[in-house]
Amino acid sequence: NITAAIYDEIQQEMKRAKVSQALFAKVAANKSQGWLCELLRWKENPSPENRTLWENLCTIRRFLNLPQHERDVIY
């Protein structure tokens, strides 16, 4: 289940792992930094009809659900 909290989790994970938006986007969703920036802007007004947005957030959720040491190896 995806909630608005995922946006904060993304920010916290980037700080914790000391990774850039570009690197996080690449490893978590195989996307660009610009894409992640755009995604983070949706926090203010996520559209329930935007299926692509929710699919991408689900992809990021799966990455964030990995154990921390696995995420660190991927970075």
Rank of each mutant, 00 (worst) to 15 (best):
N1R: 01
I2C: 15
I2T: 07
A4T: 09
A4R: 14
A5G: 15
A5S: 15
I6C: 08
I6L: 11
I6Y: 02
Y7T: 03
Y7M: 04
Y7A: 12
D8V: 12
E9H: 12
E9F: 07
I10K: 01
Q11S: 04
Q11T: 03
Q11W: 06
Q11E: 08
Q12H: 04
Q12E: 12
Q12V: 04
E13Q: 03
M14Q: 14
M14C: 03
M14E: 06
K15P: 05
K15H: 15
K15L: 13
R16F: 05
R16Y: 04
A17P: 02
K18P: 15
K18I: 15
K18L: 10
S20W: 01
S20E: 08
S20T: 07
S20D: 02
Q21N: 08
Q21K: 09
Q21F: 14
A22M: 10
A22F: 03
A22G: 06
A22H: 02
L23M: 14
L23Q: 14
F24S: 01
F24V: 02
F24A: 01
A25H: 01
A25R: 00
A25F: 03
K26Q: 10
V27Y: 15
A28T: 06
A28M: 10
A28F: 03
A29M: 06
N30M: 05
N30K: 13
N30L: 09
K31Q: 03
K31C: 01
K31G: 05
K31N: 07
S32Y: 04
S32E: 08
S32D: 06
Q33W: 06
Q33F: 02
Q33R: 09
W35K: 10
W35A: 14
W35T: 12
W35I: 04
W35Q: 07
L36S: 00
L36D: 01
C37L: 14
L39M: 07
L39G: 02
L39Q: 07
L40Q: 02
L40V: 09
R41T: 11
R41N: 09
W42S: 12
W42A: 10
W42D: 02
K43T: 13
K43W: 10
K43R: 10
E44Y: 12
E44W: 02
E44G: 11
N45M: 05
S47A: 07
P48G: 10
N50K: 15
N50T: 13
N50C: 07
R51Y: 06
R51W: 07
T52K: 11
T52V: 08
T52L: 10
W54A: 04
W54Q: 06
E55D: 12
E55Y: 02
N56V: 03
N56K: 11
L57V: 04
L57S: 04
R61I: 08
R61Y: 13
R61W: 11
R61P: 00
R61M: 10
F63T: 02
F63L: 06
L64Q: 03
L64F: 09
L66H: 02
L66W: 06
L66V: 06
P67H: 03
Q68R: 11
Q68N: 05
Q68W: 07
H69Y: 02
H69G: 08
H69T: 06
R71T: 01
R71P: 00
D72V: 05
D72P: 00
V73K: 11
I74C: 02
I74F: 01
I74M: 03
I74R: 08
I74T: 11
I74G: 12
Y75L: 08
